[in-house]
Amino acid sequence: MAIIYPLKPKLSSTSTNVVIGVIWVVAFSLAFPQCFYSKTAFYSPRTVCLVDWPEDFGGTHQLSYQISLIILIYLLPLLVMLVTYSHVGQTLWGSEIPGEASEHYQNQIKAKRKVSCNTKGLIY
């Protein structure tokens, strides 16, 4: 937002805190099942942390949980970054350089070219 709309008012501190709070609540709710159902097991010589899903949770629920986790944690942020960077790149590279399009600037460039062409023929 700061690159594309630099003069647009930013979010208020209350709105920013709400957005941050929602992000934390979603993160905790996504991680809670693995934390709740995890247990440690000792396999000599090391201790391993395992997720022991309940029997009634079933294979399909566990699979849908893992797929939704992949989508929400990996694919959705990747898609948001792709769209955002594409939009920023299109805005920055597709726009004209400030001052370059003015007629005065073009006249200065032509005058510099004339001067440089005239001085190349001189022998010092």
Rank of each mutant, 00 (worst) to 15 (best):
L78R: 06
E55V: 00
G59E: 01
S15N: 13
Y105H: 01
M1V: 10
Q106T: 07
N17Q: 05
L69F: 06
Q106A: 03
P98Q: 02
Y124D: 12
I4V: 14
I3E: 09
W53D: 02
Y124A: 15
T84C: 15
H87F: 14
K8I: 13
R113I: 09
A101L: 02
S116R: 09
T91K: 05
P77R: 12
W24T: 04
Y5A: 13
V18I: 11
W53S: 00
G99D: 03
N17I: 12
W53T: 00
K10Q: 11
Y85E: 15
L7Y: 14
S12A: 09
Y85D: 05
G58M: 11
D56A: 01
D56L: 00
N17M: 13
K8G: 04
Y43D: 07
P77W: 05
F32T: 02
F42K: 04
C49S: 05
K120L: 09
F36G: 01
K112W: 14
F36R: 00
G58F: 10
L7I: 08
N17T: 14
V83F: 11
S44Q: 09
T60Q: 07
K8Y: 06
T47A: 05
A101S: 04
K10H: 06
Q108H: 04
V18L: 14
Q66I: 07
G59F: 02
L50Y: 02
E55C: 00
L79T: 13
K114L: 14
G58D: 06
I67C: 03
S29N: 06
L72R: 01
N17R: 13
A101K: 01
R113F: 07
I4G: 04
G89I: 02
Q106L: 11
L79Q: 10
S12C: 08
K112S: 08
S116F: 15
